[in-house]
Simulated scan of single mutants.
Amino acid sequence: MASPILAGKLEAEIKIKSDPDEFFQSFGGKAHKLPNLCSDKVHGVKVHQGDWKTKGSVKLWTYAIDGKVETLKERLTVDEENKTVTAEAVGGHILEQLKSYKASLQVIPKGQSNYAKWTIEYENINENEPAPTKYLHWLIHAGKDVDASLVKA
């Protein structure tokens, strides 16, 4: 008999046309600009503790997903060298649905193209819960909106 799977990992990759450094910074040290870059998804991002880039800083997000407004309190780690931003949930609506949630963005150059890779590591509260694919879809669409906004700028 197979044991129930409580934890998992979701991944997706999108091609980006904008400057890879600008895209990376939009989710890292300049996340306060996200409401202007994808306003239908991100309503606000505020520093709750620390600052915009320092490891361990905590931000409070207000965002729309599936027609509902949710909040997320996240602890952030920004790795400039590897162009990776990792956000671990420490509060908010997502932790009412999941035991743990960690989302990472890595901007990856591949030849003449650049890609944004999203990874979500999660643990469900119980085995009857589906994988949190709605959050992966949200990240993909927010990334595409940010990319399009940066290309226009």
Rank of each mutant, 00 (worst) to 15 (best):
I125L: 14
A142H: 03
W118S: 08
H137C: 00
L72V: 01
K102L: 10
A116K: 03
S18V: 12
L72H: 06
G111Y: 07
N128L: 07
K53W: 01
E13I: 03
T62P: 00
D66K: 13
I14P: 05
E13S: 13
W118G: 09
E123Q: 15
G92P: 06
V45R: 02
L105G: 11
G143S: 15
E81Y: 06
K117Q: 15
F27S: 09
E22M: 09
V69Q: 12
T119L: 07
G67P: 10
V85W: 05
A153R: 13
H141A: 10
P130W: 02
R75F: 00
K73H: 08
G29N: 10
K99N: 13
L10S: 06
E129R: 13
S104H: 02
D19C: 14
K55G: 13
I14A: 09
A153H: 09
L139P: 01
M1V: 14
G50Y: 03
N128M: 05
S39N: 14
P35D: 04
L95S: 12
D19A: 11
S57N: 05
F23H: 13
L37C: 11
I140V: 15
E70T: 00
I16W: 06
K17C: 04
S113H: 12
I108C: 00
K9S: 14
Q106C: 12
L76R: 05
K144P: 03
G44A: 13
S18E: 09
E129V: 08
A64Y: 02
G67T: 06
K68D: 03
E22W: 01
P20F: 05
K134G: 00
D79N: 15
V45H: 01
L37A: 07
K144H: 05
D147G: 10
K46G: 02
A87P: 01
Y101H: 14
T133W: 06
F24M: 11
N114C: 14
K46Y: 08
Q106W: 03
H137I: 01
K46C: 03
L60C: 04
P132V: 09
S149A: 15
Q97N: 12
L72Y: 04
K46H: 10
S3C: 05
K152A: 15
S26G: 10
N82F: 02
F24P: 11
N124A: 12
G29F: 10
I16Q: 08
S113K: 09
Q97K: 12
F24H: 10
S113E: 15
V47G: 04
A116C: 09
E127G: 15
K9Y: 01
L76K: 01
T71K: 11
A12W: 05
G50N: 02
V85N: 00
V146S: 12
E80W: 08
I5G: 11
D145C: 14
Q49M: 14
Q25M: 15
M1F: 06
D145F: 01
P4E: 08
S57M: 04
K83W: 06
I16P: 10
G91Y: 11
L139M: 14
L98G: 03
Q97L: 08
T86K: 12
L34N: 09
A116F: 03
L37N: 04
I140D: 11
N36W: 00
A64W: 00
Q112V: 08
P20D: 06
K41T: 03
A103V: 14
Q49P: 01
N128S: 14
